[in-house]
């Protein structure tokens, strides 16, 4: 496995979608290539920040309208 193959397969590795032999080659590369270890870490950091994005919110007017619609329909 060279560095190009390694960076292409980061997601397959993280998803546990590799067969055992490929996973072993991936791990071997990870532990012996400092540059790819850096790249791997950058992927992880990217994923972490995506998980930290603030929640979006429904506009108050829309929210109130939906609460009203729920109440109206369920009262019938």
């Amino acid at each position: 496995m060279n560095c190009g193959d390694f960076v292409d397969s980061v997601t397959a590795f993280l998803d546990g979608a590799m067969d055992e032999a490929t996973e072993l080659r991936f791990l071997t590369h990870l532990t012996t290539c400092g540059d790819c270890e850096t790249c791997f870490d950058q992927f992880r950091q990217t994923i972490t920040i995506l998980g930290e994005l603030p929640e979006e919110r429904l506009a108050t007017a829309a929210r109130n309208q939906l609460l009203g619609a729920f109440g109206a329909l369920r009262r019938d």
Binding site: E55, E56, R57, L58, L66, L67, F70, R74
Partner: peptide, 19 residues
């Protein structure tokens, strides 16, 4: 059963991701 509190709960919890 028309529980408005339950509806508000799912509405507030999921709408952000849905948007």
């Amino acid at each position: 059963s028309g529980d408005e509190e339950a509806f508000a709960l799912v509405l507030d919890t999921w709408s952000g991701g849905m948007l």
